[in-house]
Design a protein around this nucleic acid. Structure first.
Lengths: 138, 138
DNA sequence: TAACAACCTACCAATTTAGTAGGGAATAAT
DNA sequence: ATTATTCCCTACTAAATTGGTAGGTTGTTA
């Protein structure tokens, strides 16, 4: 399951996607609009910025805005930055790979099943973007 | 990611699948063979039993065995019993559904994306079984 | 230089994870 | 009947993660 933090991230990003091209948006505005604890959101947006998804501006007229088009930010990217690995096992993760102790990877049946699962999941999450969230929200 | 407990469960179940039809297997045997902490494994096997996947026998000649054929135990079932929900959001889970507070489910774009993801994941996890793990482990 | 708004460091409580300890209850063999 | 065997049950624990909060710092603009 995605952490609450990740759900907050998605909600904030949807809001920013909605305002894409309209200049910076205040943290406090997103927080009250999307009902997210302010200081927690500060943290989240900062992480997204460090991951190159957002840009920020300080001082009056400042705030956060998407760095690229909503069509170019995949759900997989967001999840990886805030939530971590998408695969179900560390030894199957593309971005957070870790060897597992007690199995020979070449001959591990579970690993093979989890690789297939990962591929099916990623096929969706890599393709769908913030734009798709907006469009789906009729 | 699956918890370590779930990985232990899969390893134990593979072992039992391998010995399906050959009578009960001792916890201690599985523990040493698969390198799983004994007392922790006790716990896990008991949960799997309560979920109707295993049957047990006490006393000499006792132990655990699969209640049904390895072909009839899906990976999804195991994950749900030991790990919990498979969906990425509570409001999208089939077996552990929980309403989310701040979104109108009918019009939540994220929810729709996560439903698609869940379906893609389940298509694999519901279909693949313990038998597939054995076969894949050349 | 004042106000504004993002940034940074540090802390905190509650929950979950990954176990351990130790005895109880059922079964089978002697 | 008793002993050995094996699963079963309750309770405890340390460490990590989650979901925050507090308060000051730095950079920007008017």
């Amino acid at each position: 399951m995605l952490s609450k933090k990740t759900q907050y991230a998605f909600r904030a990003l949807s809001y920013l996607a909605d305002n894409y091209g309209k200049g910076p948006v205040l943290i406090s505005c997103i927080a009250s609009e999307k009902n997210i604890p302010l200081k927690f959101l500060e943290n989240i947006l900062n992480e997204l910025k460090k991951a190159n998804m957002l840009e920020s501006k300080k001082g009056k007229g400042g705030g956060y805005s998407l760095k690229v088009s909503p069509k170019n930010i995949s759900l997989a990217t967001v999840i990886r930055v805030i939530n971590g690995p998408i695969a179900l096992l560390p030894c199957v993760s593309l971005n957070f790979y870790e060897k597992c102790e007690d199995c020979n990877e070449e001959h591990c049946g579970l690993r093979k099943m989890m690789t297939i699962t990962r591929d099916a999941t990623l096929k969706i999450l890599e393709k769908k973007t913030l734009y798709d969230i907006l469009v789906a929200a009729v």
